[in-house]
């Protein structure tokens, strides 16, 4: 209980500082901070369309955030969600390329997740076998994925009628909005359900327990028959599952394009937003869920801030950057 209160307090402090400094930056640059914050934080809640849009933004961030959170539990700094999301999206595009009916949907889910898991296996095995630091391994794989997916989308999977993107999901295989005229698709409840499942996994499953033990203290784990390498592998695998799902959903459940942009614009940066969500949510799946909703609201609010007050959306990035900074400092202090 005390720990929960303390981490809420710390998170609240980081948020408060980020918003105060953001306000100062706005004020210096000649924008009204109060009106800006009002548009940023309240307008998204004032209208169902806007709220659903915010939730739609939260879904992929949540899924990549879970990747990082599960990694943290296993004592890993797994920043591979970015590349695994690309691979997930690539799997969905491959499915769209292979079949043109409803079967593309399950195939997309399967291929996307399979690609992502395969992608994460490389840094995981490098770490286990050769002791390669997972940060190095995953960054490397992120970049390889970036160029590989761009190449695939520019060549085999290119859309002949729309050169800026890949082939589209067949209409029958798309997850279209649950409420017409909004962005709320099945992706949102699916992502939230995933967070709950991950919570159950970490809290109640034997493997979740083993991951926690070997993440906190691999020596203890080893002494009592838990193999940290297996825990690393499982944590990487679970993380890739959610990151891959994020990539798949960005293709099959994100109107209007239902495709992967040639410059990866609809998956780029999701992995890193996920790290923010995971840090803000203190690595707890439900915390990450709340954090991703918050980040979704920020992203939705950015547009209303621009329209209603004329404040540039870059201030959202300033605030997010400051937030990460303060959260990271808190983490550092603990170490």
């Amino acid at each position: 209980m005390r720990r929960l209160a303390l981490s809420l307090l710390n998170t609240g402090l980081a948020l408060f500082l980020a918003f105060v400094l953001g306000a100062i930056a706005m004020w210096i640059s000649g924008y009204d901070p109060l009106l800006s914050y009002k548009s940023m934080l309240l307008t998204p809640l004032s209208d169902l369309t806007y709220l659903f849009s915010a939730l739609a933004f939260s879904a992929p961030i949540l899924l990549t955030g879970l990747t990082f959170a599960v990694g943290l539990k296993a004592g890993l700094f797994n920043i591979g969600a970015e590349g695994q999301t690309y691979m997930g999206a690539l799997g969905a595009v491959a499915a769209a390329y292979l079949t043109r009916d409803v079967s593309a949907l399950p195939l997309a889910a399967f291929l996307g997740v399979a690609f992502a898991v395969a992608w994460s296996a490389i840094p995981a095995l490098l770490k286990i076998w050769r002791g390669v630091n997972e940060v190095v391994g995953t960054i490397m794989m992120n970049w390889v994925a970036y160029w590989l997916v761009i190449m695939a989308v520019s060549t085999i999977f290119a859309n002949p009628s729309q050169p800026e993107e890949s082939v589209k999901m067949p209409e029958a295989a798309r997850l279209t909005p649950l409420v017409a005229g909004t962005d709320l698709t099945l992706a949102v409840p699916l992502a939230y359900l995933t967070a709950v499942l991950i919570y159950v996994f970490l809290r109640y499953s034997v493997w979740g327990y083993r991951i926690s033990i070997s993440g906190q203290n691999p020596t203890v784990a080893k002494a009592y028959g838990i193999r940290p390498e297996q825990a690393v592998l499982v944590a990487f695998g679970i993380g890739a599952l959610t990151a891959g799902l994020a990539g798949v959903l960005q293709v099959v459940a994100r109107p209007p394009s239902y495709s992967l942009a040639r410059n990866l614009a609809n998956v780029y940066g999701l992995g890193f937003d996920g790290i923010t969500a995971a840090m803000l949510g203190r690595g707890h799946p439900i915390g990450v869920l709340l954090a991703s909703v918050f980040l979704g609201i920020l992203q939705e609010g950015a547009r209303h801030m621009q329209i209603e007050v004329g404040t540039p959306f870059e201030f959202i990035r300033v605030i997010q950057g400051l937030l990460i900074l303060f959260l990271a400092l808190q983490m550092l202090r603990k170490i």
Binding site: T219, V220, G225, I226
Partner: peptide, 19 residues
């Protein structure tokens, strides 16, 4: 260092290796 995970609860520590 070798027997307990200090950050974890007694319950979690009590079942290490017999989970």
């Amino acid at each position: 260092k070798k027997a307990l995970v200090l950050e974890m609860s007694l319950v979690e520590n009590a079942i290490i290796g017999k989970e």
